[in-house]
């Protein structure tokens, strides 16, 4: 077990190195200079700036310096936010993205499990039809449409009631988080509902449920202890990748709801060609993903005795 973990971690480190190198190459392939501004500067000022950021050195040397700093955990100073270290930017903005992502996954998992179970238990009755219609919407409507539309709805409702039920944008309190995380989690919720529905259908038609019913067990107990518990397993296995995917894919929601997450910074950094922030964000997200995958694999080995880590 321990040696397996170590082996996986070493592989993970190599993967992070690969990500860093790929980012470095892709980034330097982008034409343009991160130091240029709307107004051109004269040669002396330009050289002073390049010296400060080490851009006067050959690309190979820049790469080695960057990798050296990376190994020490130093991601450098942002080109656009000149008084902030990339480490600080990540430390301040990643928790926002992560909170948003985790809340979205919680919504998605809760909603998916409940709605999925509901549809399966009422197969071909109206709750099934209604929910599956909603699921179809959730799968097929792009998230940016949802984001804009939900924001508009909140405004209308607030105006109608005369008080603010939910804030329209911003970040800080739990109420700020509800709408964006719901929007972010909607797609995953739809996917999980479908997964839950088929998994539940399989279970309620199985022999042991029939037995439990025949024994006269209370319905609630059958539902909670047998049906839900077993049907939920497939959901658990997809949660790990979902969290990572959602956390790293929340650009649009962060943009529309004015949330200071890391995704928004990345889009800006790319547009501004902010080398250090681009590098830092990709390497960090890459490492995060790799770690999540390793963790899920290890946990899965612990939870499910049929799977032996090898």
């Amino acid at each position: 077990m321990l040696s397996y973990t170590i082996k996986r971690l070493i592989q993970g480190l190599i993967t992070v190195w690969f990500i860093a190198t790929a980012t470095f190459l892709a980034m330097h392939a982008v034409p343009g200079n991160p130091l240029s501004g709307a107004k051109a500067m004269n040669v002396e000022i330009r050289q002073n700036l390049e010296r400060k950021y080490g851009l006067n050195k050959p690309v190979g040397e820049q790469y080695l310096i960057y990798m050296g700093n990376l190994a020490r955990g130093d991601l450098g100073i942002s080109f656009t936010q000149k008084n902030r270290e990339v480490n600080d930017i990540i430390r301040e903005h990643f928790p926002v993205s992560a909170t948003l992502g985790i809340m979205a996954v919680v919504f998605a998992a809760l909603g998916g499990a409940l709605f999925g179970a509901l549809t399966a238990l009422n197969r071909n009755k109206w709750p099934d039809t209604v929910i599956m219609l909603a699921v179809i919407l959730g799968i097929s409507v792009p998230s940016f449409v949802f984001a804009a539309f939900s924001q508009l709805m909140v405004v209308k409702i607030n105006a109608l009631l005369g008080i603010s039920i939910l804030p329209v944008a911003g970040w800080g309190t739990v109420s700020h988080m509800l709408l964006p995380s719901l929007v972010l989690g909607l797609g995953t919720m739809a996917y999980l509902t479908r997964l839950m529905r088929s998994s539940m259908l399989e279970i309620i038609n199985s022999d042991y449920i029939r037995t439990a019913n025949a024994k006269g067990l209370p319905q609630t107990r059958i539902f909670l202890q047998h049906e839900m518990r077993n049907a939920i397993l497939p959901l658990v296995t997809v949660l790990g990748p979902s969290i990572a995917g959602i956390t790293t894919g929340s650009f649009v929601v962060e943009l529309v709801f004015a949330i200071p997450g890391l995704g928004r910074y990345f889009v800006q950094a790319v547009q501004q060609l902010d080398y250090t922030v681009i590098m830092g964000t990709t390497v960090f997200f890459g490492a995060f993903l790799v770690l999540m995958v390793i963790l899920v694999d290890l946990l899965y080995g612990l939870i499910d005795p049929r799977v032996r880590v090898s």
């Binding site: 924001q151 911003g170 943009l255």
Partner: peptide
């Protein structure tokens, strides 16, 4: 609020925030 999205700003204004 830090946002470059005009509709987000307008929504905030309409909401009197």
């Amino acid at each position: 609020y830090f946002t470059s999205d005009p509709s987000a700003r307008v929504n905030l204004f309409r909401d009197r925030r």
